[in-house]
């Protein structure tokens, strides 16, 4: 079943005033469709049009052109109907009430969404447990840390059993442990409830952990739509093995990797993202005196730049 359908979606903004007025295209003729139960990453560099797309999908912004359907509704015209069927989390700002304890915010949401009290209690108990928020329910939102607030926002977005959850940069600013927990939670949510997920992110690991499919947007245009592995292949992205040798040596030569740079005892080897690092590490360790090793993941922006420059 198709839950989201976007055709030639477009949004322009007018910037400047009077004579200096000009039009900027934030989203340019983007088309895609998302099926129920999918987990889709919507990625791209800063200012690519990710948030603008999410805001149109959720009914916050009125599109300048194109066709748009979410859960069978026209988001900006049927905003309040749509609101009951979607949940939205913005990583950068909260939709909770700043001065109220989480518990009160949740109670008000139950009334606003007219969720049945029983369902509300069930969901609240389950999510509070899963996201470990039990001790924080009586703390006003403004006193919560970023990670705690983010978890609060996610619970708030899910209490009314939405079919689709939109997350705009959900892991921004979180520490590694919080990121991991959050990803785990989202995977569970998708697996057990079948909630469709669409998230924008800068973090390639979010995508790797969560998304079967990625849509890449740059300068307002969708430049890729497919599986993450295909993105790496098409973008020609590589991982980098950084080798610190005990002594300076000529460029390392092992099968499956190419040496890109030598600087004293340190050498940089690149190899395809979908290849395993293990045999390469083993080959290097067997042939050279290695002091230290580390692996660098490809940067999403590099992948996109590569993809776009071809």
């Amino acid at each position: 079943m198709r839950l989201i359908e976007v055709q030639e979606l477009r949004r322009t903004f007018t910037v400047g005033r009077f004579r200096a007025k000009r039009e900027v295209v934030a989203v340019r003729d983007v088309s895609f469709a998302i099926e129920a139960g999918e987990m889709v990453g919507y990625i791209g560099p800063n200012g690519a049009g990710k948030s603008t797309t999410i805001k149109m999908l959720t009914g916050i912004l009125v599109p300048s052109g194109g066709r748009l359907e979410v859960a069978g509704l026209d988001p900006s015209r049927q905003r309040t109907d749509l609101a009951r069927r979607i949940g939205v989390v913005f990583g950068q700002r909260t939709t909770l009430w700043w001065d109220l304890p989480l518990r009160d915010s949740f109670a008000v949401l139950q009334r606003i969404y007219r969720t049945s009290p029983r369902r509300h209690e069930q969901n609240l108990a389950e999510y509070v447990e899963l996201l470990d928020l039990g001790d924080l329910l009586d703390t006003p939102v403004r006193q919560l840390s970023l990670g705690q607030r983010m978890r609060g926002d996610i619970v708030a977005a899910l209490l009314h059993d939405p079919e689709i959850l939109f997350l705009d940069e959900p892991t921004i600013g979180l520490d590694v442990i919080s990121k991991g927990r959050l990803r785990e939670f989202l995977r569970t949510l998708n697996a057990t409830r079948g909630t469709t997920l669409m998230l924008t992110t800068h973090d390639l690991q979010d995508i790797e952990a969560l998304c079967d499919r990625v849509i890449v947007i740059d300068h307002g245009t969708a430049v890729f739509d497919g599986a993450l592995a295909d993105l790496h292949r098409e973008g020609g992205s590589t991982r980098t093995l950084v080798v610190d040798l005990v002594d300076e040596a000529p460029p390392i030569s092992v099968p499956g990797a190419t040496t890109r740079k030598v600087d004293g005892p340190r050498q940089w080897l690149s190899f395809p993202t979908d290849a395993s690092a293990a045999p390469i590490v083993a080959a290097v360790a067997a042939a050279y005196d290695v002091a230290d090793l580390s692996i660098q993941e490809p940067d999403i922006e590099d992948v996109i730049r590569e993809l776009y420059s071809r």
Binding site: T58, I60, T80, R84, F90, T95, Y113
Partner: peptide, 14 residues
Amino acid sequence: RMGRLDGMLLKPLP
């Protein structure tokens, strides 16, 4: 300015 209007636009009330 604070972005709170966005949050309101996401709730099922006028």
